[in-house]
Structure formats: structure tokens, C-alpha cells
Design a protein around this nucleic acid. Structure first.
Lengths: 138, 138
DNA sequence: ATAATATACTTGCAAAATGCAAGTAAAAAA
DNA sequence: TTTTTTACTTGCATTTTGCAAGTATATTAT
């Protein structure tokens, strides 16, 4: 059990105790928007996360009830990570990070997701939450 | 000039390059919701940020155009930090962190802000963005 | 049956970031 | 002229991160 220390009882501070680092939300991004679910897939992202950091963050996310880990259906040597409701509920946070980065950081490159967001924040949020819930049932 | 390294061109990743740590968004929280504007005020938060970390983060935030630093109106020995539009636009991110923490972390204590959020996310976001814009004019 | 590959980590070590306590410097107040 | 306020800076120990290599188990190939 990876336990985190809580700095205060403020909801923002407590959220950051869990999600406030450079890697955690990228794992969730890959699950939500790229449909990734295995250790090997997470390692292939453009940001090149180190293997030990990934293992550590997955353990924290699991112990915090944000995702679940299970042996894959096809292979016993593989694990499948899936989002819980607590994990699915981080999607609005991630969407706001997309919008802020797109609006204010000139070096970001437009993505399909960004294009999609032209059609409204609520619709896109609901779409990916629905998709994630379907995946959670597999 | 504090320069940050950008890990990829993904908007989420780039936003996290700037905002993705345990302290930066707490400074912005204190500016937006507690009306704080000076180094001394930031140090007084419940989370007890170290002085060197605070100085470092303020320098990053300034160099990233998220806030501005100016000599205070009343004293020459004091500085006043104010949000730019880029800073004001982080409010939706912070609001989502509040909602997630309140919903999923049982150890957080209800705040006035949370009470306010019962009346709708959009209204509260607009209120604090308007307040921040007024402050930015001072 | 045996060897090679795939998958998911763990380990060791150097580098960087954080946290803590104390010190500095300029302006304001006493 | 001394003391206090305000905003940092510095030095050092601890923690976290990043990198490269190694391990362990299951699957596939020969």
C-alpha cells in the first residue's frame, strides 16, 4: 500500500497530493484518449516515462482506487489496467488542461482531440466518460 | 528567465510541464480564492511551503506569463503579484480539482467554495474570473 | 524438450528537486 | 539610530527522478 501524505484538508491540495506531478495525469490521458491499458503501452508514449516511475505511479493509482489491475484475458503474463469511477472522474480535469495548453502554450501541436473540443466541452467529456465506462465492464 | 523543458507537443503534457507539481496550483489557488498577492501571504497557507520553493515557483510563473510582479502601492519593500489572462484561465482547472477532491477524497473538509459550487460550476468560474480581472487592473 | 521472445517489473547509482534552518539586504517604523 | 518588516538567498541533508541494466514468469518458436 503506497500511502500519500495529505498536506491539508483543502480539496485542491488533497487532489494535488494524488495527481500533482508530471506523470500521473499522462497515464490517465493514455487510458482515456488513447485506449491504452498495459504497462508496455504506457511506456511507448512520446514523453518517455522511466520504467520505475511508471511502476511506482501505477501502484499509487491502484492503491488510491483510481484504477484496477487484473490479469489480461488473452495472456497470463500481461496485466490490464482499467479506470474506476474515481479515475473516470478525472476526465474533466484533463480536458481543462488540454484547453489551457492549447490556448496559452504556442508550442503545442493541434490534435484530433482539440478539434473535437470545438464542438463543446460537455459533449466531449461525456463521450470519453461513456467510453471509459464501457471499457471498465470488459 | 526560468525555462522549462517541454516533453512533447501534447497540450496535456505541456500544461503539466508548467503546472504539474505539488505547489504551483496552490499559489494560484491562494491568489484566486483567498485574494492573496504577496510573498508573505503565500507563506501563511496551511500547507507550509518552503521559502526557496515559493521564490522559485513565483519566478517560473512570472517567466511563463502567468502572473506579473510589481512594487506594491503602499510600500517599496513589498511586491504585488497579479494574474494575467493566462493565469486567470487556470481557474477552470482549479475548479475541477476542487470538485474531484470533494467527491472522491473522504478526508477533505467542506469549504465555503464547495458550498458555492452547489449553485453550478459555470457561475462560480465566471465569478472568480471576473474578480481576478478586477484585481488585475489595480 | 529447449531455446528464444515477450511482458512486467526491480535494482543500483548518479543527478536533480525538495525541505529545513539560518543568513542577508533593503525599506519602514519606532 | 535601532528595530522590525518584507522578500528573498544559501548551505546542507533527504527525497525523488532518470537512466541503464538485470530478473522473473509466461508465451512462442524450433
Amino acid at each position: 500500500m503506497k500511502e500519500l501524505k495529505q498536506r491539508s484538508t483543502c480539496p485542491i491540495s488533497t487532489s494535488l497530493d494524488v495527481l500533482g506531478d508530471k506523470w500521473t495525469l499522462l497515464i490517465l490521458r493514455d487510458m482515456v484518449f488513447a485506449g491504452k491499458s498495459t504497462y508496455g503501452q504506457f511506456l511507448q508514449s512520446a514523453e518517455k516515462m522511466a520504467t520505475n516511475i511508471l511502476a511506482d505511479r501505477l501502484a499509487v493509482l491502484e492503491s488510491q482506487g483510481i484504477l484496477t489491475k487484473a490479469v489480461a484475458a488473452d495472456k497470463k503474463s500481461k496485466f490490464t489496467y482499467r479506470l474506476t469511477e474515481k479515475g473516470i472522474d478525472t476526465i474533466p480535469i484533463i480536458i481543462e488542461l488540454v484547453l489551457w495548453g492549447a490556448r496559452h502554450c504556442p508550442t503545442v501541436v493541434d490534435s484530433a482531440l482539440l478539434e473535437e473540443l470545438q464542438s463543446g466541452k460537455a459533449a466531449v467529456t461525456e463521450k470519453y466518460q461513456r467510453l471509459a465506462r464501457e471499457n471498465a465492464l470488459v
